[in-house]
Amino acid sequence: MFAKLLKEVGRGKRGARDLSYEEARMAAEMIVDDKVTPAQLGAFFVAERIKMESVEELQAFVEVLREHAYRVPVQEGIDCTGPYDGRKKSFYATFATAFVTAAAGLPVTLHGTAPMPPKWGITLQELLQEAGVAAAEMSRESAAHAAKETGVLYASSEQWCPPLAKLRPVRLELDMRTIINTAEKLVDYSHSPYLLFGVFHNTVFERMAKLSQNLSYRKALIVQGVEGSEDLFIERPTRTYDVSGGEATLYVINPDAYGLETAVPEIAWTPKEQLNATEAVLQGKGHLAFVNQVLLNAAVRLQLAEKVESVEEGLYICKALMDEGAPFERYRTWISLMQKQGAQTV
């Protein structure tokens, strides 16, 4: 049966057709259940890459992965979904931002894995390892406990969703983007009602907006952010799609409108440099560009999750929290819990 589905998506750029939701779900289930050969799996991923995945195909793969994942409603907040292949040239603003928004009353779910193709950049998991957190080995219960105490959940995706671990070898061998690169970001480990989703090309805005609607998020913001992430630029405007009430609206966020536009320094990023920059920002000692970037991202996320009525209100709240040191204290508590729980697990 899988061979028949493979033929439909593998007839070439002109002859290939999109699978129906039911067909795509069948393909996803067969892949997850190890009912395809390595050759078939590789061919399917390449064919989908050439054809470009439809909304129905993506939805099917997301829902099958969700059914095989550990998902717990530990908190009602925002799911921040950036590329799992990491960063090479930019500050990991979403990590520091998580503790600002959590301190403001908005729980955050982050997730990721070890470096992946095609970018092979620095991942959040490597940043956590630099902080002494063995996220990949930590039990799901331990991570959930830290989230209940602080409002920040980190899910090591290949542990929380075992099919992703099984698919890693073929993805590494292919060394290219596959349908899994999108689907893995939408597993939604804590049943978050709000979605922040990073994309690289604006050509996928409408497709991702439709997908977020099909997956029943209360509200979503699709961001053409830094290195394809969910992080807004601070040195120039960022194109986004605001998805709510069944409609998607183009929304350009300009940092200059809030007096925050700042030139970004060139830094040879390593996990250690990322961690140092994160801690400096949370302590109010970081480079102004990164401080402003965290403030803007936090304010926009609070507005998305209906915690504030405007970005300006969000900036006011987040700046006050930063000045008081609340996000850094929350970060220290979270790191301590994660280190302690990780040590017990290992």
Rank of each mutant, 00 (worst) to 15 (best):
L275C: 07
A165N: 01
S157P: 00
A155T: 02
T150I: 04
Q283P: 09
V170S: 12
L221E: 05
V252A: 03
L282A: 08
R168S: 00
F205H: 09
H191Q: 09
F200I: 04
A257L: 14
N254M: 01
V187Q: 02
Y194E: 10
S212W: 13
P163L: 06
K219E: 05
E266T: 10
G228D: 10
Y189Q: 02
N214H: 10
G225A: 06
V199D: 03
P237C: 01
T270F: 09
I179Y: 14
K185R: 15
E206Y: 14
A248M: 13
G245M: 11
Q274M: 14
V204K: 00
Y251I: 00
N214G: 03
D175A: 13
R239H: 12
L282D: 09
A220H: 12
T240I: 07
A248V: 05
R171F: 06
V152S: 07
T182A: 05
P271F: 12
L196I: 11
P255M: 08
N254D: 15
P162C: 09
I222N: 13
A220G: 10
R171Q: 13
V199R: 01
P271E: 12
V152F: 07
E247W: 05
S156Q: 03
R207W: 02
L186M: 02
E227G: 03
Q224S: 08
D256S: 15
A263R: 08
K185W: 00
V152A: 11
T203C: 02
T182C: 03
